[in-house]
Design a binder for these strands. Sequence first.
DNA 1: TGAAGAATCGATCATATGATCGATTTATGG
DNA 2: CCATAAATCGATCATATGATCGATTCTTCA
Lengths: 206, 206
Amino acid sequence: MEKSTSLQHYVRGPHRRGEIAKAARTLIVEKGYAALRTRDVAERVGISLSTMHFHVATKSDLVALVAETTMDAFLSLLPPAPSPDMPAQKQLRTEVQAYYDSLLEHGELAACYVQLTQAASDEPRIRPMLEAFEQGWSQRFADILHIGREQGVFRANVSPLPAALVITGALTAFGTRGPGKLEMFWPVFDEIERGLLAIDPKGKDT
Amino acid sequence: MEKSTSLQHYVRGPHRRGEIAKAARTLIVEKGYAALRTRDVAERVGISLSTMHFHVATKSDLVALVAETTMDAFLSLLPPAPSPDMPAQKQLRTEVQAYYDSLLEHGELAACYVQLTQAASDEPRIRPMLEAFEQGWSQRFADILHIGREQGVFRANVSPLPAALVITGALTAFGTRGPGKLEMFWPVFDEIERGLLAIDPKGKDT
DNA sequence: TGAAGAATCGATCATATGATCGATTTATGG
DNA sequence: CCATAAATCGATCATATGATCGATTCTTCA
């Protein structure tokens, strides 16, 4: 239990903030925001509580840092912005697939997002961030739906924004439920898609 | 600040547990489960911390008590169980209307439910309760959808359970968002309904 | 090479919080 | 009307937790 020989103490630059943010996110996902302890974060990084406070002054700052990095990471996983020149049904699938992949490969992000939602009552600073994120995400779906309606692939009476809220609402539910519950993901999306598609009897047009 | 003349101390019977549960629920809704303090609950009821512990031994017991009473209260607001002999579209509306009413008149219940979801990590005892509740609620919608499909009011290719998850997922999102966001409730539901209804060209049958 | 500053640590503080204990007060049945 | 149990309270404990302080070690660069 004695210190290993090669411990390279003393990390320079802003690297430690990244490590701290990551550790905090992991702990938030594992035990929930309510159980987040600055001590545990420091221990996870392998530094003392004091050092941790040196890099991130207060717990409030820590939460804000986690919120920033988490949502940035999430946004970087999204496909290109919706385009009127691409088939809408495919764009919808792609968008949802990206979310599904994020749940599989980066489940921490969605799970952490849910926790941050709870943290918002303690930390009003992060609320605007969360709202902007959620609104932006819904808008992507609304854009796709609008495009698809123009293209005639979706029902003519689709209301883009409400329909987008249906999608984000239904899919967000999978972020909260633990893994294993993911088996209903595609059945749920398929059901949504069936409800959106224009009835195209016999594939004839006009 | 001196004790009012007529303070009827000493409440007999199990009445205090009810008061405590109610106070705890209110506080959970106001400030979130993470900020729930046994002291605050006691103060809200108007008793000392010791008395509070006399009636509800531990904080864990308190949370379990809140979970029980909250879900019981919620269930009591639901309409009669789905019936194959009634028009499914109307039953669906009724079911959703009941939920909407509960959000308006008893927003504490849905809000508290969301908080209890978070509490589940600290308090494993309440997890089975929450799961049973959620499963039961989704099943009600699944039953209605199945009935409606048989009746021909809903698409023949509706999958009851996935569609039910779409509904509960989309509607649950309104429980988390604060009031004021409720204006999108019915547009969202109308969109869901449009996606479910069988195309009934010109209202002719067979 | 030798300040100067960046990074780290151990010790400690101040407070919050769940829980316990013993004493006291009140209602109730016999 | 009084003895017993239920209900209440104040004081206190034990611990958890965010934060601070001063000393120490390492890195950098002039």
